[in-house]
Amino acid sequence: MYAQMVKSSGKGVKSREEMTEQERDFQDRIDADVKIEPRDWMPEEYRKTLVRQIGQHAHSEIVGQLPEGNWITRAPTLERKMILLAKVQDEAGHGLYLYCAAETLGVSRDDLTEDLLSGKMKYSSIFNYPTLNWADIGAVGWLVDGAAIMNQVPLQRTSYGPYSRAMIRICKEESFHQRQGYDIMMKMAQGSPEQKRMAQDALNRFWYPSLMMFGPSDKDSVHSAQSMAWKIKINTNDELRQKFVDQTVPQAEYLGLSIPDEDLKWNEETGHYDFTEPDWKEFFDVIKGNGPCNTERMNDRTRAWEDGKWVREGLLAHGRKKAARKSAAKVAAE
């Protein structure tokens, strides 16, 4: 997902006997669906895990601007250009909300940014894949946002108040994202032979990377168990992936496109589609930095950060001068 493989760094879920009284109270509040707020007591591991998860989620939104931003200047109509620009702008907004949520936990946005640029913190693997034709913009909205929404809707109920509120706002704003993607896919799938070819090509390239977004199976992971006990993770990766496949297959059929999986078929017994797992070796390669676009994405972010330094410093210096002049004028008036 946007936050993949977040380590909870604890040693797994403690039994009630192992918990201190404070920890028991804390867990009771979470079990009773009472939100945890910034200055409430919380276990250090809860705080650290949240910083990693929210930070990774925020980074994903920001890096996620790049593959779609790649097509803003080439959008084929004025309306498509505006829709895409508004969507990519929303992603910047979502990154901003999430950084602010992380900041309530005692880290700063600049520190998180530096951790991203140094490679210490990660972002979702999906954004290391290229957008090569216009239908990719449709596929990203349809598949990538579709997968993200699947994860984000339950996260609106997460236990940490600021994170939950950010997710509520994000979900509200994101409702148009997946639809605009599918709308592009419909136009392309019903269009000229070349447009259909673009649409199929986009689906072929984005299908498995989209399945990877949910992360490897975590049914035996101690990290996931702890995160689920703390309600900062709501479903297992496999549950969400299955739900995504079940939802997406009929949508692809409607478009008249084929999902690049020969073994994909409906299973009467389970009531779900059987499908081929993505190549997890490829996933780990991408996570390690060897995806098709890792280097470009980080170069872009690093350049924006370094080239922007003088701007941030210049405006801050002016703000300080202005404040100083104001207080000097006040002193003089008194």
Partner: peptide, 22 residues
């Protein structure tokens, strides 16, 4: 009452921050 709505940041180089205020 406590002075701030959030916990103190554990900034790496607290002295010469160039970060815009929140």
């Amino acid at each position: 009452v406590s002075p701030s709505p959030y916990p103190e940041t554990e900034s790496k180089e607290k002295t010469d921050r160039k970060e815009w205020p929140l």
